[in-house]
Computed example of a mutant assay.
Amino acid sequence: MAYWLFKSEPDTWSWDQQVAKGQVGEEWGGVRNYQARNNMRAMKIGDRGFFYHSNVGKEIVGIVEVCAESHPDSTTEDARWDCVDIRAVAPMARPISLEMAKAEPRLKDMALVQNTRLSVQPVTEAEWAVVLELSGTADPA
C-alpha cells in the first residue's frame, strides 16, 4: 500500500462533502499539474491518503482511500488529465496543522512541509505513522 496527501480548499471541496459521498466516493478531478497527475497515475485501489484543507485551516482533517484507479478526468476534454476516485475512511482524532507538521523534526522532509503548493503528493510510510501518532488517530488499515 502507498500513502498520499490530497489538498483541497474547504470552500471548494471540504472533508464534510467528501464524507457525504459515502462508499461511492468522489472523483478527484480538476488537477492541472503534471506532477500531481503522475502521482494519481501511480495510485492503486486501497492506497490511503490524508485529506488536507488548504488555504483555510491548513490542516490534515481526515483519511481517505483510493476507490478507483487513474481514469480520464471528467472536468475536461483534454486527454492529458487523469484523476482517481477517493472515499472518506475516518476523520483525524485531532487535525494536524501545517505549523505542527513543520515543527515536527521527523516530518522535515515531508512533501507537505517542503512543497506546500503541490495538490496531490506522496507520503512515506514513516511520515504516515508520525502524522497518525501526532493526531492520536488509530491506523484504520
Rank of each mutant, 00 (worst) to 15 (best):
V123K: 07
R94Y: 03
E133C: 05
E27A: 15
N39H: 13
G49P: 02
I45Y: 00
V31L: 03
G29M: 04
E104P: 00
L132Y: 12
G49S: 04
A42C: 03
V19T: 15
D139S: 10
M92D: 10
E104W: 01
G49Q: 02
W81A: 03
E99K: 06
M1A: 01
Q23T: 15
V56K: 06
Y3M: 07
D11W: 14
D11K: 15
E26G: 13
P122T: 12
P91C: 04
E77R: 13
L134A: 06
M92W: 09
G62H: 05
I60A: 09
L118I: 15
S14K: 13
D109Q: 08
V66Y: 03
K108R: 09
A129N: 10
V113S: 05
N55G: 00
A79G: 07
H53A: 09
P95M: 02
P10N: 13
Q35A: 13
W28V: 10
A90M: 00
E125H: 13
Q18R: 12
Q121A: 15
P140Q: 06
I96H: 03
E9C: 05
L5K: 05
R87T: 04
I86Y: 05
Q121M: 12
S135Q: 07
V61S: 09
T124M: 09
R32I: 12
V31R: 01
P105F: 01
Y3W: 11
L118F: 10
S119Y: 12
K7V: 07
A129G: 05
W28R: 09
T12K: 07
S8G: 08
Q17V: 10
A79S: 12
T124A: 09
M40Q: 11
P91E: 10
V89I: 13
E59K: 14
V24K: 15
D16R: 15
P10H: 14
V19K: 15
P140A: 03
S14A: 14
Y34W: 14
E125S: 14
T116L: 03
Y34C: 05
A101S: 02
L132I: 05
K21V: 15
N55I: 12
P122D: 14
I45W: 00
E104H: 01
P122G: 11
T75C: 07
R37I: 08
E27V: 14
A93F: 00
Q18G: 12
Q18V: 15
P95Q: 03
A93N: 06
V19H: 15
V31A: 03
G25A: 11
I96N: 02
L5P: 02
T12C: 10
W81G: 02
E9M: 03
K58N: 11
V131C: 12
A103V: 00
V120G: 04
R37Q: 09
R80Q: 12
E69T: 06
Q114W: 03
C83G: 04
G22F: 14
T137V: 12
E59A: 14
G29N: 13
N38F: 10
S8R: 07
N33T: 07
A2I: 01
C67S: 07
F51T: 05
W4I: 01
A68M: 06
G30A: 08
V130L: 09
T116G: 08
V113H: 06
Q35G: 10
C83T: 05
S54W: 08
K58C: 08
L107W: 02
K58M: 08
M1I: 01
K7A: 05
P122Y: 14
V24S: 14
P95I: 04
Q23W: 13
D78P: 14
L134Q: 03
F50V: 05
T137Q: 10
D47L: 01
